[in-house]
Structure formats: C-alpha cells, structure tokens
C-alpha cells in the first residue's frame, strides 16, 4: 500500500514558523492501530497538513474499516 499522501499543490507555508511544508513522516493513530504515512509537514514545528481529499477519501475509509475490526 502506498502510504504517501502528498497533495499535488505543496505550496503551503506554516505560520508563524515561516517554513514551507516538506514531505515528512507522520504517525496516525486510530482505535488501537498506528501507522506512519508521508504528509506535508512543517520542518520546524512538525505540524502536518491533512488535505480534504485525504480526509474524506482514504482516511475515512480506513477509519470505518478499523471501527469494524
């Protein structure tokens, strides 16, 4: 499974860090499961961007899957 969820448009800057978001590894948790995925991340503070497409697509799918486990 491809665990990289970088949006086509990476032209985002974290404020007030002033850093451009970079591909980074982020840990996501849900109902006892933990996975590492690649997302746009602020290199300074580590805050990650969850895009709309990801949230209403693959992420929702996995949430529902895990809830039924």
């Amino acid at each position: 499974m491809n665990l990289s969820f970088l949006p086509p448009d990476m032209n985002w800057t974290c404020e007030p860090c002033g850093e451009k978001l970079q591909p980074g590894i982020v840990e996501l948790q849900y109902v006892g499961s933990v996975f590492k995925v690649e997302l746009p991340v602020c290199p300074k503070c580590g805050k990650a961007l969850i895009s709309e497409d990801l949230a209403i697509g693959r992420m929702l799918e996995v949430e529902l899957l895990l809830e039924d486990k």
Binding site: P23, Q29, V34, V41, C42, P43, G46, I50, I56
Partner: peptide, 29 residues
C-alpha cells in the same frame, strides 16, 4: 476539524471544511 478560508477585514469566507477522527500523533520532516 480542518478549514480552508480567506480572511478580509476580520470576516472569514469559508471555502471548505473537512474532518477526521484519526489522531495525528506527531510528525517530522
């Protein structure tokens, strides 16, 4: 909850909003 918006003179124009239940435990570039 996530929100995409523009801000003009203290008023917020909401362009989209989405949410997820997963927890972002931490990240690093």
């Amino acid at each position: 909850f996530w929100l995409q918006y523009t801000e003009t003179d203290g008023s917020f124009m909401v362009e989209s909003c989405w949410s997820h239940r997963m927890i972002i435990a931490g990240g690093s570039a």
